[in-house]
Design a protein around this nucleic acid. Structure first.
Lengths: 356, 356
DNA sequence: AACATGGCCGGGAACGATTGCACACTTATT
DNA sequence: AATAAGTGTGCAATCGTTCCCGGCCATGTT
């Protein structure tokens, strides 16, 4: 006698038959009259399986296009062969290039890449990273959000042994591998270029002061001023707490600078988004380059050659940074012994001089 | 009744837990002297567990920051709560915006997003998608690569029941949900704008002819010419097989157009990358806009307002497209009944007129 | 002839979670 | 007082894979 199934039971059952159900070891074993262990060993080419059995199994596996279930493997091996990435925004050519670098290495070494965006929010960063960690990523590649000054959420994971490598915006307090551009030198060269162009009052527009990149780029700016005996004016340094996330933030900073009694005649901008935001603000406020002010800035945009006004830019080796960070992370993940000796790799930037 | 366990158990456990080994149900069960099933049920708030036991379990779980192992869950539930995305390139503002749309919905509905890039290569697309499918993604969001004309690899997965939704560059032969911009109308408006500016000989630079977007945009272009009684010249239509992946490809196409005895006086460009490539080629070849030629093109770049020469652009609602495609995919994934009724959503584009 | 060796293979536990079923115990109903 | 109903908990199977352990047979050694 038939049990009284809910009305939709049959449909559900049918659906499950149609649904995407890959073949398993058990299927092969059943079809060939072998045990799953034998099939598993045959496929892994163990020495204790006869050549004949191996041939039969391999042939059949090929025929039905068998692939081991990666989820089951992950559970068994307690690793997911995936790495998590946390960065502020993919809609930024610098980070897009970094991602390409990350992928190129991860792909070759058999890892998946899961990208998450913080949109410069600390809370979002925390949620994303917890999510990644609980999703059993084998390691993390991190560039901090603009809002992040407290890194204890990362510290905790790191303490528990989750491998992580920082790039770009690194955490001072966490002792692990780090990859950055030579921010000091890049900032120095950018500022020096303004000085050589004849600027005397050079402003500096930058990200929040707690970020590693802000500190380092400020240092380079300061050193250039010192070298050429120009005074460091605190009023010329403008921080954007949101890293220029909103256009208004950048615009207001520019407005304040240009309202000073002694207007700056040059400005060194410390990040991609701020550089673009600055140019947009100039356009809106009808500030002309280089007549009213000269500008240099960190920027990896691919259309800088088309942009008016022209921007002399400091470009970071983004692709290589992604590659290097990923290689270091995978080395950490695959290391058989705990690693205590961490290094910080610093890659040179390039100054692209564009004259108006 | 309360079980007796050593007060220092937790501390000891922590000490042993040097490597990143998340807590399991078994750990909680052992610590509290319960069975794993009881713990599981307590955490899932089943009615058959006493309030007191629930309190104890919940409290302890909170204290050690327990999270169920998602890999084990995936194995059990035969789903990964993740969706795979295949697109050509994240370093493209249009796709970056789509990704933001995808993430916004996926995040809310509890899904992970795994992004893969084809870099316009058919082989890469095949490998990525097979990889995603074998990683047990619950569904796929796909915009085809420029090289992809044969979609049988996708057809096979779709036949086997893997939910997929196409956006932007859709597969004609696969019957599933699709989300696109109103490419015909967008192309029509862009071409019409050139005509209204006085152009008589309008060229069309586009992606490979097998892509849905190429076909639709060509249609719009053709309709505009027809409406205004302009002849359709085959020599004015240039296809870029790589979608403008290399700058040389675009440059050569422009060179050929400008070497024609009857040079075009306007050009409608069918994609983001080609539009930018076109402007770069103009700059290099010293072709001036609008004196030598007028130009309109599909483009979602965020810096169009800064670009010289100015580009009158057709902008796609990229964020909304990502949102819509994701919502449709998740509905497919979570549908209790097989879905046979698929729809194609078409979203309007916007024409941003920028005069030189 | 008795015993060790090794090749080949199957059984079953484990990874971490959920869940149907069985069982023990308490309380209510007849 | 006997039975039913309800409550709280544990056992064991399951998902797909790997791997330890042990069994069987054929061959080689003493």
């Amino acid at each position: 006698m038939l049990r009284n199934y809910p009305q939709n039971f049959v449909d559900l059952y049918d659906l499950n038959n149609v649904m995407f159900e890959p073949y398993t070891l058990k299927d092969i074993a059943k079809a060939l009259g072998l045990s799953t262990s034998t099939v598993s060993r045959a496929l892994r080419d163990t020495h204790e399986i006869s050549a004949e059995t191996k041939r039969i199994v391999l042939e059949y596996a090929q025929k039905i296009n068998y692939h081991p279930n990666p989820i089951a493997l992950s559970l068994k091996e307690r690793r997911s062969r995936s790495i998590g990435v946390s960065l502020s925004e993919v809609a930024n050519h610098y980070y897009a290039q970094v991602i390409n670098g990350i992928e190129s290495i991860a792909y070759d070494r058999g890892y998946h890449v899961i990208i998450t965006q913080t949109h410069e929010s600390y809370d979002r960063e925390k949620v994303n990273i917890d999510h990644l960690a609980s999703r059993s990523v084998d390691g993390l590649l991190i560039s901090l959000s603009a809002e992040t000054s407290d890194t204890s959420h990362l510290h905790h994971l790191h303490q528990r042994g989750l491998p992580m490598v920082f790039f770009d915006r690194v955490a001072a307090k966490i002792n692990t591998h780090k990859v950055t551009a030579n921010n000091e030198k890049g900032a120095f060269e950018a500022t020096e270029h303004l000085i050589k162009q004849g600027c005397k009052r050079i402003a500096h527009l930058t990200s929040p002061d707690h970020l590693s990149i802000s500190i380092e780029r400020l240092n380079g700016y300061r050193q250039a001023l010192e070298k050429y005996n120009l005074p460091l004016e605190e009023t010329y340094i403008k921080y954007c707490p949101q890293g220029g996330k909103s256009r208004l933030e950048t615009e207001n900073a520019i407005r304040e600078l240009m309202n000073l009694s002694e207007k700056p005649d040059g400005i060194f901008v410390a990040s991609d988004r701020l550089s673009i935001g600055c140019l947009i603000a100039f356009k809106k406020l009808k500030i002309s380059v280089p007549e009213d002010i000269e500008i240099t800035g960190f920027c990896n945009s691919d259309v800088l050659d088309l942009i008016e006004p022209t921007l002399t830019s400091v470009s970071q080796p983004a692709f290589e940074m992604g590659q290097l960070a990923t290689a270091m992370l995978i080395d950490l993940i695959e290391s058989k012994y705990p690693v205590y000796d961490f290094e910080k790799k610093i890659l040179d930037t390039s100054l692209y001089i564009r004259n108006a």
